[in-house]
Amino acid sequence: MPDYDFNSPRLFVADALTAGGTVSLDATQANYLLAVMRLADGANVLAFNGRDGEWRCHIARTAKKKADLVAEERLRPQTPAPTLAYLFAPLKHARLDYMVQKAVEMGAGILQPVMTQHVQASRVNVERMRANAIEAAEQCGILSIPECREPMKFDAALQAYLPRGPFIFCDEREDAESPIETLRRLEKGPLSLMIGPEGGFSTEERTRLHAETGVTAISLGPRILRADTAAVAALAVVQAAIGDWKCVS
């Protein structure tokens, strides 16, 4: 990674970012900068909106508890959003928050909850998912907020994502062949990665997955992993074998 400013606060904003342009801050953002971070008028802040790259801005205080940002200079151009789709059986609250944040850090571009037979949580708060995705992107220098999609049933998810390109699923019953070698044999293209619930995929779901053309099963080794741990492990393996880690020099 090139030199990066890890010291300045970083915010995702909705407004366009142009040299000299003013960016409106909502009450939560203004409170974070002025009351939590205790930043003064004129202090530097990094801002991004998923369209215009990352900009160095300064705080322009408008009232005791209100402020705008004024964009000064673009530091990084906008890069294409990641095409990796991460499909997962929802977990409960805190562990789902953690999993979403880590998936964003690991380069997921689409977050797709899938309602499997053994799923733990029957409801998903998509707005909460997006809030966690934004927080992770702000903290980790990411320029695009992943798409946080509404939950889909298992069969519908396969119909929607199989045509995109290579479809990978983590199978706890798969022989422990090196996942790196398995993944390197796949064709290039937008990737979809599916991880099941704590109880694993049902027999019917595993049979369906193995029967589909274009689906590749991988093992995550000899240990049993919880779903949020499996997410980090699987995304690391995929990115190292055929993802954007291969592009890093």
Results as ranks from 00 to 15, higher is better:
Ala19Glu: 15
Asp3Phe: 12
Arg76Gln: 13
Asp68Ile: 10
Lys92Tyr: 06
Tyr32Ser: 10
Asn7Asp: 15
Ser8Pro: 08
Leu87Ser: 04
Thr79Leu: 14
Ser8Ala: 15
Gly42Lys: 06
Met106Cys: 15
Pro9Tyr: 11
Leu69Gln: 01
Gly107Trp: 07
Ala103Arg: 08
Ala81Lys: 10
Pro80Asn: 06
Ala67Tyr: 04
Ala81Val: 05
Glu105Ser: 03
Gly109Leu: 05
Leu75Asp: 04
Met99His: 00
Ala16Gly: 09
Thr28Gly: 11
Leu84Arg: 01
Thr28Lys: 13
Met115Tyr: 07
Val13Trp: 05
Arg38His: 09
Ala40Ile: 09
Gln29Phe: 05
Arg56Thr: 12
Pro2Arg: 15
Asn7Gln: 14
Gly50Tyr: 01
Ala43His: 09
Leu39Ala: 07
Leu34Cys: 02
Ala16Val: 06
Gly42Val: 03
Asp68Thr: 13
Leu111Tyr: 03
Asp97His: 12
Gln101Lys: 11
Asn31Glu: 12
Asn44Phe: 08
Ala16Tyr: 07
Gly21Leu: 10
Ser24Met: 12
Asn44Ser: 14
Pro80His: 08
Ala121Trp: 03
Trp55Gly: 00
Ser122His: 11
Asp15Arg: 10
Ala30Thr: 11
Leu87Phe: 05
Phe12Lys: 10
Arg74His: 05
Asn7Ala: 14
Ala71Tyr: 00
Tyr32Gly: 08
Phe48Ile: 00
Pro2Leu: 14
Gln101Ser: 08
Phe88Trp: 06
Met37Gln: 14
Pro77Cys: 08
Ala63Val: 09
Leu25Lys: 06
His58Glu: 15
Lys64Tyr: 06
Gly53Ser: 00
Ala40His: 13
Thr22Phe: 14
Arg38Met: 05
Arg61Asn: 10
Thr83Asn: 07
Gly21Val: 03
Ile110Val: 15
Glu72Gln: 13
Ala67His: 08
Asn44Tyr: 06
Leu17Ile: 02
Ala108Ile: 04
Lys92Thr: 07
Ala19Phe: 08
Pro90Ala: 00
Tyr86Leu: 10
Val13Asp: 02
Gly109Lys: 02
Arg10Ser: 05
Leu75Phe: 02
Arg61Pro: 08
Leu39Phe: 13
Glu72Met: 11
Met115Ala: 08
Lys102Glu: 10
Trp55Met: 00
Gly109Arg: 02
Gly50Thr: 05
Ala63Met: 09
Val45Asn: 02
Val36His: 12
Thr116Phe: 02
Ala103Gly: 13
Ala63Ser: 15
Gln120Glu: 14
Phe6Asn: 12
Val104Cys: 12
Leu96Thr: 12
His58Phe: 11
Tyr86Cys: 07
Val100Phe: 01
Asn7Arg: 12
Leu96Trp: 07
Pro90Lys: 01
Ala85Met: 06
Glu73Tyr: 03
Leu46His: 02
Leu25Glu: 07
Val23Trp: 00
Lys64Gly: 08
Val36Glu: 10
Val70Tyr: 06
Val119Asn: 04
Asn44Asp: 15
Asp3His: 13
Tyr32Leu: 09
Asn31Ile: 03
His118Tyr: 04
Leu46Ser: 01
Leu46Arg: 05
Asn49Arg: 08
Asp68Leu: 11
Asp41Thr: 01
Asn7Val: 12
